[in-house]
């Protein structure tokens, strides 16, 4: 068995004194682990930082084996983020969310592409848009895993206008008028998730977006497996919404 693919490093764990087990989110093979010989050496460790884009060559005798990775660095997002606490927190949060939510070896090319867009945003010239992309990436992750939010129309009236809330149970949007009696029990829907917001979202909008995707990731994806949202995501949400 042998394949090549592009992907992003999600995590790296030590295996013995010198080797590493690398968790990579690849476009064509999903989240895939592999052994990197000498991965803990001084010269290789920089390439294997979470968030980095890499080209991997995976080899194993049988497809179900862990296999060995040969790694070629493509873009070192981790080193670009090192100077910014917010970028680093976003990078760590995204990597840990992907690692916790995505099953191994299941194809999610859109999530992988979105991860790349998020890394560019976190380390690029406009880091202020990164939290919005983070929330949209998480919404895309939910969609890809089969738990997507339905924000097209109101679940009660069928109206396409004034969508302002989301049901925490079904993930369907509710318009302002229909939500009035239950507003306290519904989750706020930030306008940027509908794509109809002019200007930058407020910290309150970002907090609402992160609360929304966080709620459904925890409820639908993580809790059935006895997991909770990663601490790194809570820290990023805290930094963003201050």
């Amino acid at each position: 068995m042998d394949w090549q693919d592009d992907g992003y490093v999600l995590s790296v764990g030590r295996f013995g004194d010198h080797d590493a087990i690398l968790d990579v989110l690849t476009k064509g093979h999903g989240r895939h682990l592999g052994l990197v010989k000498g991965g803990m050496s001084k010269t290789r460790r920089a390439d294997l930082q979470p968030g980095n884009q890499v080209r991997v060559d995976w080899k194993a005798r049988l497809s179900e084996q862990l296999g060995r990775y040969e790694i070629e660095p493509v873009r070192a997002y981790a080193s670009l983020a090192l100077d910014s606490g917010l970028a680093l927190a976003g990078l760590t949060a995204a990597a840990s969310v992907a690692s916790a939510c995505l099953p191994e070896r299941e194809l999610h090319p859109a999530v992988c592409e979105g991860f790349g867009v998020l890394m560019e945003a976190l380390t690029g010239a406009q880091p202020s848009i990164a939290p919005v992309i983070f929330v949209k990436w998480e919404a895309g992750l939910l969609q890809d895993l089969g738990f997507g939010l339905d924000l097209t129309k109101c679940a009660v009236t069928g109206s396409f206008d004034n969508l302002a809330f989301v049901s925490p149970r079904t993930g369907r949007a509710v318009c302002h008028e229909a939500a009035a009696p239950y507003a306290s029990r519904l989750m706020a829907l930030p306008p940027f998730l509908l794509g109809n917001q002019a200007g930058s979202p407020t910290p309150a909008d970002l907090a609402a977006g992160l609360r929304l995707t966080g709620h459904f990731l925890a409820q639908s994806v993580l809790e059935p497996h006895g997991k909770t949202l990663p601490q790194a995501r809570d820290y990023y949400a805290d930094l963003v919404t201050r």
Binding site: G51, A78, S79, L82, G85, L88, T92, A232
Partner: peptide, 15 residues
């Protein structure tokens, strides 16, 4: 360390 974990810790402590 000049790693993601090391620098994330540095930023957290600074804050």
């Amino acid at each position: 360390s000049a790693t993601v974990e090391g620098q994330a810790t540095a930023h957290y402590i600074t804050e």
